[in-house]
């Protein structure tokens, strides 16, 4: 994020505080930052318990999406038949509004953790596949010709050349996927749950408990930001060669 965006954050907080303090809007519609902070500290145990549930669903959904997405991408790149068969299905799964089919998953899978994870997987899966396919196809053709002259077996070419070469692309997909996975888990909680931040927000909404609603929203956003940063750190640690190049080409995302 750029310098100017960083300096706008306290400004937004001030605007929020002024609106609440001057009672421009009724307190039950927009709570003051103080009231929200109050809920965050006094109900910390309650919030933490539900935050953990949402985080758990998000991480599990994200992990499944990464494994399945990477495998699907590899199979698609190595077999054009599979690619032709799988691509329309993937695209369909992507364009179907996940929020609209979420209630169906609750009917099928019950009120447990399963439908939340399924929705998180469905939402996070697409960017993983697309970025991995792009990465695997972006490999230098001369590099592949070279490995042919070295007598490389297909798995050697994959392990030593294609897979590592695809990682920078994969990571840009992972950054999108991890934030989407949070949305997926919360959508799952909205349509039928008795725990998780989605449930907390629905409850608070029903009780017109706006400070709690705002607290839930804040924590939820924080999960997304933290996971995004974790993926970025993982990228820097795993692909130091890529990060050092990127720093000079000024496409930093955070």
């Amino acid at each position: 994020m750029s310098q100017s965006a960083l300096s706008k954050r306290p400004a937004a907080l001030v605007v929020w505080w002024v609106i609440a303090a001057a009672e421009l809007i009724e307190a039950y519609l927009v709570p003051s930052p103080g009231a929200t902070l109050d809920v965050l500290t006094s109900k910390a145990g309650y919030l933490w318990q539900h935050t953990w549930v949402t985080t758990y669903e998000t991480l599990l959904g994200f992990a499944i999406a990464v494994v399945v997405g990477v495998l699907a991408a590899v199979v698609m790149v190595y077999s054009s038949t599979v690619e032709r068969t799988l691509y329309p299905i993937l695209l369909f799964a992507q364009v179907v509004p996940k929020i609209a089919i979420a209630p169906l998953f609750v009917v099928w899978l019950g009120f447990g953790i399963a439908p939340k994870i399924l929705i998180a997987v469905l939402i996070a899966f697409f960017p993983v596949v697309i970025s991995m396919v792009t990465g695997l196809k972006a490999v230098d053709p001369e590099m592949l010709q070279l490995s042919a002259t070295m007598g490389a077996k297909p798995w050697q070419t994959f392990v030593k050349i294609r897979f590592p070469a695809s990682l920078p692309h994969l990571f840009s997909g992972l950054k999108v996927a991890v934030t989407l996975a949070v949305t997926g888990a919360v959508v799952g909680e909205f349509v039928g749950a008795n725990e998780g931040l989605g449930y907390v927000i629905l409850q608070a909404n029903g009780n017109l408990d706006t400070p709690m609603l705002f607290a839930g929203l804040l924590v939820m956003s924080l999960i997304g930001v933290v996971l995004f940063v974790v993926v970025e750190i993982a990228e820097k640690l795993l692909l130091p060669w890529h990060a050092s190049r990127r720093d000079t080409s000024a496409t930093t995302t955070f």
């Binding site: 230098d140 590099m143 002259t149 890529h242």
Partner: peptide, 18 residues
Amino acid sequence: GPRHDIGYVFQRAALLEW
């Protein structure tokens, strides 16, 4: 088919950047 008893050098070095 692809021969293994050769060395090949392209115009671009084609090195693995990692």
